[in-house]
């Protein structure tokens, strides 16, 4: 077992992990931050996307030991402490960007990473960036719309596909 320490959503977190413990399992089982989901467990679906040192990564395809000393941000850290949703989360609600909600934590974290590097993405850029996030409910349209809206762009003209 190895002792790991990291900063998760701005707060210190630590625990004992095996070499093979995945970051997503450390977050969910040890820290009880169950907002980060395990969908496919094969790095295809993106339900487990979190940020490590500001970069979006799939927490199911990284060992907890590798995040030792890192700044980790998960879906739980996105809303304000009083529960007020952040801009992206609010846009998902306003534009019905989720149905069952299983993929949503990963979608929101990927969207946050996209808007950080590209504050005004085109619709095509949003769709391209979501290559690694799979949603089986919405058909993506309202997710794309929500992300466009969160970036402050007009979305009423976005035609349904």
């Amino acid at each position: 077992m190895t002792q790991v320490k990291m900063t998760v959503n701005g707060k210190p977190a630590s625990g004992e992990v095996e070499g093979r413990t995945l970051l997503v399992h450390f977050l969910r089982d040890d820290l009880e931050l169950t907002g980060t989901h395990v969908g496919c467990d094969t790095s295809q679906c993106g339900a487990c996307v979190v940020h490590v040192n500001g970069n979006a990564v799939k927490a199911c395809t990284m060992f907890a030991v590798e995040a030792d000393g890192a700044e980790v941000d998960t879906i739980e850290g996105q809303a304000a402490p009083d529960g007020t949703l952040n801009t992206i989360q609010q846009a998902f609600q306003d534009h019905h960007g989720l149905q069952c909600g299983f993929c949503t934590p990963g979608m929101v974290m990927s969207a946050a990473a996209l808007l950080k590097e590209n504050p005004k993405p085109s619709e095509a850029e949003v769709r391209h960036y979501l290559d690694g996030n799979i949603c089986r409910c919405t058909g993506y349209h309202n997710i794309v719309k929500a992300i466009m809206a969160a970036s402050g762009q007009e979305v009423s003209a976005l035609a349904a596909e």
């Binding site: 996307v49 979006a56 799939k58 395809t61 990927s110 960036y129 690694g132």
Partner: peptide, 9 residues
């Protein structure tokens, strides 16, 4: 290559 999260690792 892959997708954005894969490219970050």
């Amino acid at each position: 290559i892959g997708d954005p999260a894969v490219r970050n690792r």
